[in-house]
Amino acid sequence: MPEDTSQPQLMPGQLLARGVCRHLRQHDFVSVVELTPTSGLRVDVMALGPKGEVWVIECKSSRADFQSDHKWQGYLEWCDRFFWAVDQDFPTELLPDDTGLIIADGYDAEILRMGPETKLAAARRKVMIQKFARHAAIRAQAARDPNAIYDW
């Protein structure tokens, strides 16, 4: 049977993000990928919890991917909890102990260590929830009408 080419081939980090998003739904979190909280930063996964919790998950597919990321600490001020998502073969001893840890693959994930909670200020939370909602709505509209023009 011929291979289905209607779906684009996902990169390793995108597969991790998919598994993370699937797992977070089991915890009543909804998520979006590649959200820009502020100019110059783009998080791999932002998750919104049932009580308005904002989590950021950075997906790292290799040691080199992690070591080349010099922006991750800038994400901390945009979330209540921060996590790394890596596959089971990733050398987790490289990851800071004071961050969350998720082991993932393209199908599911498991939270091994919760990131410490640093509650967002109310004004920042409002901004992030609005960015999340607009990002999700734009993505949903693009899926419904892929030929329309979108300002990403």
Rank of each mutant, 00 (worst) to 15 (best):
M1F: 09
M1H: 15
M1K: 11
P2D: 12
P2Q: 12
D4F: 13
Q7R: 14
Q7T: 09
P8H: 09
Q9S: 12
P12W: 07
P12M: 05
L16T: 07
R18T: 09
R18E: 05
C21S: 01
R22W: 14
H23L: 06
D28S: 06
V30F: 04
S31H: 06
V33D: 08
E34W: 09
L35M: 12
L41H: 15
L41N: 03
V45A: 13
L48D: 03
L48H: 06
P50Y: 08
K51I: 04
I57D: 03
I57C: 02
K60R: 04
S61I: 02
S62H: 10
R63L: 10
D69K: 14
W72M: 04
Y75P: 05
E77D: 01
W78N: 00
D80R: 09
D80K: 10
R81N: 05
R81A: 05
F82H: 05
W84K: 00
A85V: 00
A85N: 00
V86N: 08
V86E: 00
Q88P: 03
D89M: 09
P91R: 04
L94P: 04
P96R: 11
P96V: 03
T99G: 13
L101E: 00
L101N: 06
I102T: 07
A104F: 04
D105V: 02
D105I: 06
G106Y: 05
D108F: 12
D108Q: 07
D108H: 03
I111W: 13
I111R: 05
R113Y: 13
L120I: 12
A122K: 01
A123P: 06
R125W: 14
R125C: 10
I129Y: 15
A133Q: 12
H135A: 01
H135Y: 09
A136R: 02
R139E: 01
R139A: 06
R139N: 03
Q141V: 02
A142C: 03
A143V: 04
R144V: 10
D145K: 11
N147S: 14
I149G: 04
Y150I: 11
Y150S: 03
